[in-house]
């Protein structure tokens, strides 16, 4: 996917910059972006190491098993392919728990771990399985209970009522989740019939 999108972005914006005379801003943007990527990686480095370490502790206790049991009905429903694989179920549920708690930085490393385990079971190594697809789709949904980042931003900008949008966020999240599921199911059934999208 990125093999198509990335060059498209580059070709579009570079040729547009040449014709519109924005070359100098583009030049500085290129170098700014690379250093942004590095500084973001360094910001991520600390938190990802921390959460990976914390979650490794949790992984060795019975805590995760208990939470996994709570999520089991949902995981059974969403990931029918991996009903037999306890380890993947555990990793998926840890990712979901981190997402729900709004620990985005913790959710990503946990999610990548689950992806790697699912890849081991994958027969066609270059293609997403149904479980992987479902898992990524869930991770592109913002399923946190309290949108902490937005509330923090609103608070810092001097809002009269920073939390007033929480209810709106819930409604929008649920509607998007329903749409996501419907679209997933629709594409899936079309795909089953052998049509390439």
């Amino acid at each position: 996917m990125l093999n198509k999108i990335w060059p498209a972005f580059i070709i579009l914006s570079f040729s547009y910059a040449i014709f519109s005379g924005n070359l100098d801003t583009l030049n500085s943007a290129i170098f700014q972006s690379t250093s942004d990527a590095i500084s973001l990686s360094f910001d991520l480095l600390g938190t990802i190491c921390l959460w990976n370490g914390i979650m490794q502790i949790a992984n060795r206790t019975s805590l995760v098993d208990k939470l996994t049991n709570l999520l089991k009905p949902i995981i059974y429903l969403l990931f029918p392919e991996i009903r037999e694989n306890k380890q993947i179920q555990k990793e998926i549920s840890m990712n979901m728990i981190a997402n729900i708690l709004g620990l985005g930085n913790a959710a990503t490393p946990l999610g990548l771990k689950a992806m790697k385990s699912m890849q081991k079971e994958n027969l066609k190594k270059d293609t997403l399985t149904d479980s992987m697809l479902m898992f990524i789709v869930i991770n592109t949904a913002s399923i946190q209970i309290i949108p902490t980042t937005v509330i923090a931003i609103r608070n810092s900008l001097g809002s009269q009522n920073p939390t007033s949008i929480v209810f709106f966020v819930w409604v929008a999240t649920i509607c998007a989740a329903v749409a996501r599921n419907n679209c997933h199911q629709m594409c899936h059934s079309i795909h089953e019939k052998g049509v390439k999208i």
Binding site: W6, A17, S20, T25, Q32, A37
Partner: peptide, 12 residues
């Protein structure tokens, strides 16, 4: 990041 930065700053 480079691709997105280019997209934003080229004006496209």
């Amino acid at each position: 990041f480079v691709a997105i930065g280019a997209l934003r700053h080229s004006g496209i």
